[in-house]
Simulated scan of single mutants.
Amino acid sequence: MSETIPATLGALKHPAISFEFFPPKTAEMEKSLWETINRLAPLTPNFVSVTYGAGGSTRERTHSTIARILGETELLPAAHLTCVGAARGEIDDVVARYHEVGVRHIVALRGDPPGGIGTPFSTHPDGYQTSAGLVDGIKKRFPDIEVSVSAYPEKHPESPSFDADIDGLKAKVDAGATRAITQVFFDNDLYFRYLDRVRAHGIDIPIVPGIMPMHNFKQARAFVTRAGTTVPDWLAEKFDGLDDDAETRKLVAATVAAGQVQKLNKHGVDTFHFYTMNRADLVFAICHLLGIRPTSAHFPKFARPSQLTALRTSESYGH
């Protein structure tokens, strides 16, 4: 084994990476998030995204986190935006204010229902009816904003068929999306089969794998299965008996995720998006195993208070 590991790592071509965070709910969670951001920033990700809660429930916290990233770091933030529970004009105003403070990348999503995954979904009568419509609305008003969208290697749970699901992705691409980030998956064959289907439909944008280290296997499995992700038996077996052994769980989770990324990379995948769950430890370890090392270029720049005041003043999104 000691002879094969260097060869595997040597074959890797330091992939491009991006990270996803969610906006904190409490002062303690905010402190933890910024410890995570400061730990991961020196790995020089292409961008970092900040999520939106179900029904846009975290809108103000998402905006605040984005503004702070702009003001205190050299990272490029991508703001998640959904079209749930808001009129078109309200969403357009959010986009305009993001643009005003310097955001040039939006992850455009339909969004989950306000009641969460599995509850009834309905659009706002005066809002964008689909994520493709949201993409179109963003690109028509601000052509300089890059738009990423979601993709589903196992099909969106609400789509009637795989073809219908991929037609939805094609509509988002035709509207101006230039990158798709996948829902988390654990079987690489699912990703490659999906990629074949997507390319057969004439979709040629990057389909970036979404990778989620399983910090807490039971919780993570419950979360991802609600969103339609299959958790294979072999993966469950690796965590069997570790419910009360957090340290070993972390080692296993890092090994599994690093192995998945290495195998994808060996088959030509060179860009990855990590669902960090606002924790740095496993993601940093996985990136280290992939040969990615910290640089000094993206340490926090700590903007002057006047800069932060200007950002937060222009970020009065509620009106």
Score class of each variant (00 low, 15 high):
D174A: 08
A171F: 07
D204A: 13
F192W: 10
G202P: 01
A177H: 07
A175I: 10
K172E: 11
A151L: 00
S161R: 06
E158F: 04
V184Y: 01
P157K: 01
V184P: 01
A164W: 11
P153T: 13
A171T: 00
I145L: 13
G168I: 08
S159F: 10
T178A: 13
S161M: 06
V147Y: 09
R193Y: 02
D174H: 06
D163P: 03
L190V: 06
G137I: 15
D165A: 06
K140A: 15
L169M: 05
S159C: 05
R199C: 03
I205W: 12
A200M: 11
G137D: 09
F142K: 00
I205H: 02
P153V: 12
R179Q: 12
K155P: 00
K170A: 14
G176L: 06
F162R: 03
V198Q: 07
T178F: 11
A151I: 00
S161Y: 05
G168A: 13
P143N: 15
R141P: 04
V184C: 02
I166S: 07
S150Y: 01
D204I: 05
I138C: 05
T178N: 10
D196M: 11
F186K: 12
T182P: 02
V198T: 09
R197E: 13
D196Q: 11
R179T: 13
A151S: 15
A151M: 02
Q183V: 05
V208Q: 04
E158D: 14
H156V: 07
V147R: 08
V198C: 00
L169N: 10
R199I: 09
K170M: 12
Y152M: 09
R199F: 09
R141W: 04
Q183D: 01
G168Q: 08
A180M: 04
H201E: 13
I145A: 06
D165M: 08
I138D: 05
T178S: 15
I181M: 06
R197S: 11
G168R: 06
S161K: 05
T182Y: 06
P143M: 15
F162S: 04
D174G: 01
V173G: 02
V208G: 03
K172Y: 00
R197P: 00
A180S: 08
Y152E: 13
I203P: 04
V173C: 06
P209G: 08
F162Q: 07
A177W: 07
D163E: 15
P209H: 08
A164D: 14
L195N: 12
S159E: 11
P206G: 05
D174P: 00
D163N: 03
R193P: 02
H201S: 08
G137R: 12
D167V: 08
V184S: 01
G137T: 14
A175Y: 06
A171H: 01
P160Y: 09
A177V: 13
S161C: 01
E158W: 02
Y191A: 03
P143L: 15
Y194C: 14
F162P: 01
R199A: 12
A200I: 09
I207W: 07
S148A: 15
